[in-house]
């Protein structure tokens, strides 16, 4: 699968752009946290597209964000 680029994204309708990024992000998140993959991906998709593209290219920064998302979720669940 070819890497997702900014120009590929720009050619897509706005509402499709997050879906396109999500389709790339989801399997990577699933590798780390299969149970929470949908939720974590949804949280990450609120980040700017330009930053998300960088994260797709950088496993280290992606993993850091995934861990951050898990920590936020756990803190949120602990409060309820």
């Amino acid at each position: 699968q070819e890497p997702l680029t900014a120009s590929m994204l720009a050619a897509a309708p706005l509402h499709e752009q997050k879906q396109m990024i999500g389709e790339r992000l989801y399997p990577l998140v699933h590798n780390v946290h299969s149970q929470l993959a949908g939720k974590i991906t949804g949280m990450l998709l609120e980040i700017d597209n330009s930053e998300l593209l960088l994260m797709l290219e950088s496993p280290e920064s992606l993993h850091a964000k995934i861990e951050e998302a898990v920590a936020v979720l756990q803190a949120h669940q602990a409060m309820e």
């Binding site: 879906q19 999500g22 389709e23 399997p27 991906t41 998709l45």
Partner: peptide, 21 residues
């Protein structure tokens, strides 16, 4: 530092994803 991630974000549903074997 407070995270900017939102725990109430909508869950993402992939169109096409198969479990890796």
């Amino acid at each position: 530092r407070k995270s900017t991630l939102n725990p109430n974000a909508k869950e993402f549903n992939p169109r096409s994803f198969s479990q890796p074997k």
